[in-house]
Design a protein around this nucleic acid. Structure first.
Lengths: 330, 330
DNA sequence: ACAAGGAAGTAACGCGCGTTATTAAAGCGC
DNA sequence: GCGCTTTAATAACGCGCGTTACTTCCTTGT
């Protein structure tokens, strides 16, 4: 920077003013041009670390996930990343691998790097408890919530998702809709079932509990559940299946095809999660709902930026809709 | 840090010595204990940015990928990440989205952050040309190579992969092995075909060109190709299919099942890429080869660490084996 | 002609730390 | 008791930059 100043025939301060577009500093165009030329000629690059030190603003946000691999975390990262870079902020990403020790170590490193905020994301919607150190810095939870309900969080709107999926099947003319659910104890399963039942009631149909079977989140479990549903007498057999996730839909597909039934003519299927590799390549392609991971990532950075700037949050608990992806299974 | 020094009754320098385990500095246990106690009591955390500035070592490596989403990039990141954190180094990750402008911007930011090395990873094995700015810092290519052949690179061993897949089918007793290949012009397709033919020749079988058909990397393309192969007269029909990737294997599965043939009894299948969501949930589960993305990521950080330390590289071009994942389709 | 005010630019300090050169005290052999 | 080495610790500088307080020069109005 001193070299630039010397070459441009000004002081280092002036160079700094130009680089930061300092408001209130009167820099004639001619001087500015000389400085920019010098920067270009010398190939000068400001040192981000030194700037951070002097300005007392690191520009970093931390992002802790359980695993970096896996489509979910990757999408959150994508969303957060793009939003952050656009804002000239940067993401220090760490994976906890589900290990509290690694998680604590990662958090330590982040605090040493003076992150201005922390994003904590989980693979599936559930409650979490953070290490105490997380209180030292603004924190936003993504796809999870803390038991004490103190931290702001961003969650998928499971209820409206279940409603939307069911509604889609109702619109296609189905009235007996089987629901192969996830583990019934988790928030996703509870919310989606509520949405499912609300959609039915809104259509004037009384929810039939026997049409709801847990598939335990596996393809095999869903296969078994689908067999059970499809082998009922014709009058009780569902003409559509709403599956808790796409892997489960895969199992359901097998059960359906095995019985010589066609999708969607004989049985329609809606999945959940939009696991691209499954949904887009099943035959026929699977209509499913997407968990809005990328949107949750960007929203997380937004909220963090607000918090870091000292602004209050309008909403402490944000829910984001799960969009329906129309393919060929309905 | 001054507070710590004051509380411990020593100078800031002494605190620094303790923090860095400075060799040659004689610190009595008693003094060290007092300092560590003071650190603990005050909850002091060193400022990583300031350390970097003073020591002139940022501790950062940059990682540029085309997309952060997608299983490939995610695995590379996982590998690089775990290796880097273990070494107290950190990854500044950016996605180019295939856009040269974004790529250049990302690189600029990385250089401003004074990364000590750059990892450049692509989604599929191919040649690349880097922005000139990349020359300013040690660079290692992952899953790609530069046309000039100047930069060190890490590549999957396609030839041995093709050989291993074919060998597995030969070992299972197959002699007419169809190969539904990727776009024949790309390195992966070329290497794997070489391996395929070598394995055949080693088994005393003359490669039959008509058994090799491009599937153009899509499930539909592979489906068409598989139909063509399976509809040949019995004597010319392959009893096993080696597919260029798992999506293509998915298409092949459909063609096989449609004809009432069973996997693996009538037709065995080997895929490539180990796209977990497909390979592990197809029925029967798909035997496939994994691209060693995670290993490539860790190796990349290793090489970068060596380069950043000024050590010469033993090998300029590293290839890593593609392991066979045994499931149920052979 | 002169004060007032703005335009253009600078010197100097501090951010939090690593590191070198130096000092002061303590131990040791005789 | 004296010189010499080791031990323990420190003052002071610099890393690359942002920022504040200050100076100098030019314009403008009267």
């Amino acid at each position: 920077m001193s070299d630039v100043a010397r070459l441009a025939g000004v002081s280092r301060t002036t160079v700094s003013f130009v680089l930061n577009d300092k408001p209130g500093a009167a820099i004639p165009d001619e001087t500015r041009r000389r400085i920019l030329e010098a920067i270009d000629e010398l190939g000068y690059r400001p040192n981000a670390g030194a700037r951070a030190l002097a300005a007392n603003r690191s520009g970093w946000f931390g992002l802790i996930t359980e695993i970096v691999t896996g489509p979910f975390a990757a999408e959150v990262i994508t969303g957060a990343q793009s939003r952050a870079w656009g804002d000239r902020r940067f993401l220090l990403i760490a994976a906890s691998e589900g290990d509290p020790a690694q998680e604590a170590a990662a958090l330590d490193q982040m605090l040493e790097h003076r992150v201005e905020g922390l994003l904590y994301a989980t693979t599936w919607h559930r409650a979490v408890t953070l290490p105490k150190a997380a209180r030292e810095v603004p924190t936003v939870l993504v796809n999870c919530y803390d038991a004490e309900g103190e931290l702001p969080c961003i969650l998928p709107d499971e209820e409206s998702g279940g409603h939307r999926a069911t509604r889609r099947l109702l619109d296609a003319g189905h009235t007996r809709i089987g629901f192969i659910n996830l583990d019934p104890a988790i928030p996703a399963a509870i919310g989606r079932r509520e949405g499912y039942e609300r959609a039915l009631r809104e259509a004037g149909i009384t929810p039939e509990p026997s049409l709801v079977i847990p598939g335990w989140a596996t393809a095999d479990g869903a296969y078994t559940a689908a067999c059970e549903l499809l082998d009922r007498p014709a009058a009780a057999r569902p003409t559509a299946l709403f599956c808790g996730n796409d892997r489960m839909a895969m199992g359901a597909y097998d059960a359906i095809k095995e019985r010589g039934l066609r999708i969607p003519h004989d049985v329609a299927v809606v999945g959940f999660d939009n696991q691209e590799l499954i949904a887009a390549y099943l035959r026929p392609k699977l209509t499913t709902l997407a968990l809005p991971f990328e949107a949750m990532g960007t929203k997380g950075v937004d909220m963090l930026a607000a918090l870091a700037a000292g602004q209050p949050l309008d909403t402490h608990r944000v829910t984001i809709d799960c969009p329906l992806l129309e393919r060929s299974s309905v």
